[in-house]
Nucleic acid binder design. Structure first.
Length: 225
DNA sequence: CTCCAGGGGGCCA
DNA sequence: TGGCCCCATGGA
């Protein structure tokens, strides 16, 4: 992997000037962000919204309430987000952890590296979910890599292989950009925006993309072999 | 009808 | 490690 200081900043500027600030994560509270991070695993955000709305309406978007609610009841409420039994179990795992940790606020004091490792040990919390929680709920400078990120990087030619690891992509950004929470927040959100709008699987070329300069720009260079 | 969506874990070579 | 399969609803 080559060094590419400057390149990623320019890509960010192109995205930001085209789409503007994204005001992420789409959730009102830290708990809601964490819940959303689990529910959106391989699931469209539209379906996640319905599940979150169900939880709110039932008065369950609250750490204590959620902790006291049994798993099958949670499963019933989050049904629209798919994989509902699996996700009810995963939600219970993270909620129990938060409860035992003394609440979300208490987590912010912990060492970032140790906290990430701890989150990754929870069943159902993988790298993307952990990093989403760290960045968007806890305000830690961690770059989130998701399916859109991969697809966009691949399409504009910044990565060439199909099997570039999560950590490899994350390091690409974190080693070449300042460790800035607000920058990482916007960058990932902008990738999702571009991904949802013009870089889906159903739009395999960039011809309809108004941010075409991004594609042309990326294709001139390859950074990850 | 088929394909896809802001993953993660288990299993096997 | 790396590839496959499973989990499941709702929209295109």
């Amino acid at each position: 992997m080559k060094r590419m200081k400057g390149t990623l900043e320019k890509l960010f500027d192109l995205l930001y000037s085209h789409f503007g600030p994204q005001h992420w994560w789409p959730g009102e509270t830290e708990l809601e962000i964490i819940v959303g991070a689990v529910l959106t695993q391989n699931t469209s955000w539209k379906n996640v919204e319905k599940a979150i709305e169900n939880l709110k309406r039932a008065g369950k978007m609250d750490l204590n309430a959620l902790h006291l609610t049994n798993e099958s009841e949670v499963a019933k409420l989050i049904r629209p987000s798919g994989f509902f039994k699996l996700k009810a179990s995963r939600l219970k795992n993270i909620v129990d952890f938060l409860f035992r940790a003394g609440g979300i606020e208490a987590l912010k004091e912990k060492d970032l590296h140790e906290l990430r490792e701890t989150l990754l040990r929870i069943r159902g919390i993988g790298p993307e979910t952990a990093d989403s929680i760290l960045l968007y709920a806890l305000g830690k400078p961690v770059f989130v890599v998701d399916a859109y990120t991969r697809r966009i990087l691949k399409r504009i030619g910044l990565i060439q292989r199909e099997n570039v690891s999560y950590d490899e992509i994350q390091q690409l950004f974190m080693k070449n950009l300042p460790q800035d929470v607000q920058l990482y927040n916007e960058y990932h959100a902008l990738f999702v925006k571009l991904g949802k709008t013009y870089c889906t699987k159903r739009t395999p070329n960039c011809n309809s993309c108004p941010a075409l300069s991004i594609c042309k720009y990326g294709k001139e260079m390859a950074y990850v072999r």
